[in-house]
C-alpha cells in the first residue's frame, strides 16, 4: 500500500518481480540507444546546428550586415523596398532580426554551403524557415554562425516564432533558392 509505510523494516533486500526486471532492462537499453543517437548524428548526420557564436554589439552587427548587403544586392523584393542579396556561392551570408522584419531577403544557390550569420538588433526572435521547418533561437548581442546547405529550390518563408511584441505576427522574411 503506497499510502502506508512499507510493512518490512528492511525492504531493500526484497527480490524484484520478473516482469519489472525485464522492463527495466529493455527500457535501459532504449535509453542508451536514444543517448547515442545524438553523438552518432554528429558523426554521420547532415543536420547538426553549429554552436559557434560571438558576443557583438547590435550596432556593430547591423553595420556588418548593411555593408555586406550593399555589396551584393541584385534587386528589390517586389515593391517592398527590401533588397534581395545574392552573395557568391559558398560565401558568408548575413541576416538580422529586428522589430518586425528579417532583413534582407536572400537569394542562394541550391546545393551550395553558406556560412550563415544570424543575430537580433533588439529583442529575442525565433528564426523559423518554412516549409522546411528549421527553427533557431536568435538573441540580441550574440552573433551565431552555422553552415547552411539548401537542398531544395523555390521560395522559402522566414517567420518569427518567439514572441517579440505586438507586431510579432507580421514579422516575415524570405529566402529564394535557385538552381544553378
Amino acid at each position: 500500500m503506497g499510502i502506508f509505510p512499507p510493512p518490512q523494516r528492511v525492504w531493500w533486500n526484497q527480490p524484484i518481480e520478473k516482469s519489472e526486471v525485464m522492463w527495466i532492462t529493455i527500457a535501459f537499453i532504449w535509453a542508451l540507444v536514444m543517448f547515442f543517437m545524438m553523438p552518432y548524428w554528429h558523426l554521420v548526420g547532415e543536420q547538426n546546428l553549429s554552436n559557434e557564436a560571438y558576443k557583438i554589439k547590435p550596432e556593430v552587427y547591423a553595420e556588418k550586415v548593411e555593408t555586406w548587403a550593399a555589396k551584393y544586392t541584385v534587386r528589390e523584393e517586389g515593391d517592398t523596398g527590401i533588397p534581395v542579396v545574392r552573395p557568391p556561392a559558398g560565401s558568408d551570408v548575413y541576416m538580422l532580426g529586428r522589430l518586425w522584419e528579417w532583413w534582407p531577403v536572400l537569394e542562394l544557390e541550391k546545393g551550395q554551403s553558406y556560412r550563415f550569420h544570424l543575430s537580433s538588433l533588439d529583442w529575442m526572435h525565433g528564426w523559423s524557415l518554412l516549409p522546411e521547418n528549421i527553427n533557431i533561437q536568435v538573441h540580441p548581442n550574440y552573433e551565431m554562425i552555422f553552415t547552411v546547405k539548401p537542398t531544395s529550390s523555390g521560395e522559402f518563408g522566414v517567420i518569427c516564432n518567439e514572441f517579440c511584441g505586438i507586431g510579432h505576427h507580421t514579422m516575415v522574411g524570405k529566402i529564394h533558392v535557385v538552381d544553378k
Binding site: A53, Y54, K55, I56, V60, Y61, Y142, E143
Partner: peptide, 8 residues
C-alpha cells in the same frame, strides 16, 4: 555563456 568570445 561567459566563455563565448567577443566578435573581432
Amino acid at each position: 555563456t561567459i566563455a563565448i568570445p567577443l566578435a573581432q
